[in-house]
Write a protein that binds this DNA or RNA. Structure first.
Length: 342
DNA sequence: TCTGGGGTCCTCTTTCTC
DNA sequence: TCTGGAGAAAGAGGACCC
């Protein structure tokens, strides 16, 4: 979906159409938070996702800042996903505003299906999307990014060299800022240059798994399957304080509250965690985690909180704390009926 | 001066168990 | 009882995604 959160807000508040809109945090650009989505009007001022709200406000003070309204975006997301499933039962969710669709068995042309999908989504939601067609998920994903908004890009196996190779390595799904910088240091800036690198060098530099991935991805090779049903592996809550703190009471109060939220989330989703991890980020952004394994999987506030405090006790609180978080991992499905104890 | 929150997966090291 | 090795599990950190 194109600038999804911002587009949903512009749809329900039409006076926002044509204006720079920035969605993020609590919607107050003087508070801590980052940009989730910026409308295309705001992007012209240099505002982009993951940018601190304060920075966005400096770049574009006239923008309308709004809080993230997940329930509403999820509602619209479900409408979109339902439409996609009409076109193929093989759909893989990629977050709230993206999905992969396997249309290889449809017998229709990609252009046909794409224009059908676009018009159906527009009819039901008033929103536009960008579609990428490729021989696999990796290539389709890159294609979907090439023409936005409201784009359609088709890349076939024979287009890999001409369409993929000139692009920055950063365009590959799985190459982030760290790897981009590392590759740049090796003189590799484009996907084409990456494709020219010997497998041995990549494996030596990045390890077997990631090195092989880079080698294949640069050639447009991706045989990863569609993941059509997904089980959660962990469930977590974390908070960044508005001001860094060294007040143990404040930290403890938040840790207790986060533990409660994690337990609530587990109960609602019908899972129990076998493992509890506490995360602490200090004012210099150093982040440490401490984990503990429970005797048996739990979803009770008491057990999760107790484990969380045991973990916190192993963290040396030598600097001001910026963030605390609690995560339940090693999830197991709660036994039937276990979640409805009165 | 800044740098969210919710996730996944990988790697390395340590600890446990046989 | 001590020792060492192999392999699994646990713990910590880091990179990446939306």
């Amino acid at each position: 979906m194109d600038a999804f959160f911002a587009a949903v807000e512009q749809k329900r508040q039409p006076d926002l159409i044509g204006r720079p809109v920035v969605i993020g945090g609590g919607g107050d650009p003087t508070q801590r938070g980052v940009v989730s989505t910026a409308s295309y009007e705001a992007r012209r001022f240099g505002v982009h996702s993951a940018m601190p709200l304060r920075t966005a406000h400096k770049l574009c003070p006239q923008a309308v800042f709004l809080p993230v309204d997940y329930p509403e975006y999820s509602r619209v997301s479900r409408i979109v996903k339902d439409i996609l499933r009409e076109f193929s039962p093989v759909m893989e969710d990629v977050g709230i505003d993206e999905a992969f669709l396997d249309i290889s068995g449809s017998g229709r042309s990609a252009e046909d299906i794409s224009s059908d999908i676009k018009s159906k989504i527009y009819d039901k939601t008033g929103l536009t999307c960008s579609i990428g067609i490729g021989p696999n998920k990796l290539v389709a994903k890159i294609a979907s990014d090439m023409q936005k908004p409201d784009g359609l890009t088709i890349i076939s196996e024979t287009d890999i060299e001409s369409k993929l190779w000139p692009l920055s390595v950063r365009k590959l799904w799985g190459v982030g800022p760290k790897t981009e910088a590392h590759l740049k240091g090796m003189g590799i800036e484009t996907i084409g240059r990456l494709a020219a690198a010997p497998l041995g060098l990549l494996v030596e530099t990045f390890g077997n798994s990631y090195g092989t991935f880079l080698f294949e991805a640069s050639r447009g090779i991706d045989d990863s399957p569609f993941v059509t049903n997904w089980e959660p592996k962990s469930s977590s809550r974390e908070t960044t304080f508005q001001r860094d703190t060294d007040n143990w009471q404040v930290i403890a109060r938040h840790l207790a509250e986060l533990s409660r939220e994690v337990a609530d989330d587990l109960k609602k989703s019908g899972y129990r965690g076998r493992n509890v991890t506490v995360k602490v980020r200090f004012d210099d952004f150093e982040t440490v985690t401490r984990a503990t394994t429970l005797r048996e999987a739990a979803d009770s506030v008491e057990l999760i909180r107790k484990a969380a405090f045991e973990c916190l006790g192993r963290v040396e609180l030598k600097k001001r704390v910026r963030l605390v978080g609690v995560r339940a991992g090693k999830l197991e499905k709660a036994a039937a009926g276990g979640a409805v104890k009165a």
